[in-house]
Simulated scan of single mutants.
Amino acid sequence: MSMQDVLEHLQRLGMSGYEAKAYVALVAAGKPINGYEVAKRSGVPRSTVYETLGKLVARGAAYELRGAADATDYLPLPPHSLLDRLRREFDGSVEALQTALPSVVAAPEAHPIHNLKDGEAMLARAGDVLAGARRDLFLSVWPQELRRLEGQVRQAAGRGVEVSVMTFGKAADPFGEDRVGHVYEHRYSAPEAVLQDLGYRLIVVVGDRREAVVGGFGRDGSAWGVYTADPAVALMAAEYVRQDIALQILAERVGADELNRLFATDPGLLRLLGRGRAPNGA
């Protein structure tokens, strides 16, 4: 991790840019140093370095050491102690807000729905759905996207969420040896045929049948999608994944040839297909 990464992470945990630079300078010094040395080592302007150090002292990230002639040196709180303290403060704030925030939130006039402008936004919002699930998750994804989400999928299963994943193509099992979720590979229809028909890689992520992310990744690198907390839409998205999984299981049990025969000879099934051919392209 670069020094810039360290500074950015400290800022994400609540420090200002100057505070992060000053703290890192104190830690790197290995001994108490005065404000002049902090400014010289960190790049914090001399005009603001003492104000910055005062803020670090106020938050408990540094300590003042009074020396001879009223000279003041500064000593950092050791990094492991700082991180433990920040973690406790963060966890305490989250716990307090879990109780406090719902009491001030007005009931929405309508279930939220919003567009997702690109692939990164879509995967980030899908991660939110994965993190928020408490009962069940349904995913229909391609290996490229599953690799980005597998850590959060595994975490959800680890906290007791029932996870069902449909993959379009061979993908690494996100559950590893834990076997705490269910993964199905899409063979009927073949992923290549699906991609040829749609022209993009569809992604569906549904949490607790109350919120969903649905979108697509184009072959040219483009991506589009929506997030919705409309339970009716989320339920339909979950049923899409559930029924696709059921079809894969059925094809494995009775054989693809028998399913092809049924699709080819039943007018009702042909009408639902809408293309006058069996699902696997036959």
Score class of each variant (00 low, 15 high):
His182Arg: 14
Tyr188Gln: 05
Lys117Phe: 04
His186Ser: 06
Val241Lys: 06
Phe168Ala: 15
Ala131Asp: 08
Leu130Gln: 01
Asp118Pro: 01
Met166Asp: 02
Trp224Asn: 08
Ala157Cys: 05
Arg219His: 09
Gly132Ala: 12
Arg209Met: 06
Pro143Glu: 05
Leu149Asp: 07
Leu137Arg: 04
Phe217Val: 12
Arg135Glu: 11
Gly215Met: 07
Arg148Leu: 09
Arg242Gln: 14
Ala234Thr: 10
Glu239Ser: 14
Ala237Tyr: 11
Ala238Gly: 09
Phe217Met: 14
Arg147Asp: 15
Asp244Ala: 15
Leu198Arg: 14
Ala246Glu: 15
Val241Met: 08
Leu247Arg: 14
Leu123His: 08
Val194Cys: 10
Ala131Phe: 00
Arg148Pro: 01
Arg242Phe: 11
Glu211Ala: 12
Ser164Met: 07
Ser164Lys: 11
Val205Asn: 04
Phe138Trp: 14
Gly158Lys: 11
Asp173Lys: 03
Ala193Ile: 09
Tyr227His: 14
Asp178Gln: 13
Asp220Ile: 00
Met122Gln: 12
Arg125Ala: 09
Glu192Ile: 01
Thr228Ala: 04
Met236Trp: 09
Gly127Thr: 02
His114Ser: 11
Arg210Ala: 12
Val183Ser: 03
Arg179Pro: 00
Glu211Asn: 10
Asp220Cys: 00
Gly119Pro: 00
Asp230Leu: 02
Gln144Asn: 06
Gly181His: 05
Val226Arg: 09
Asp136Met: 00
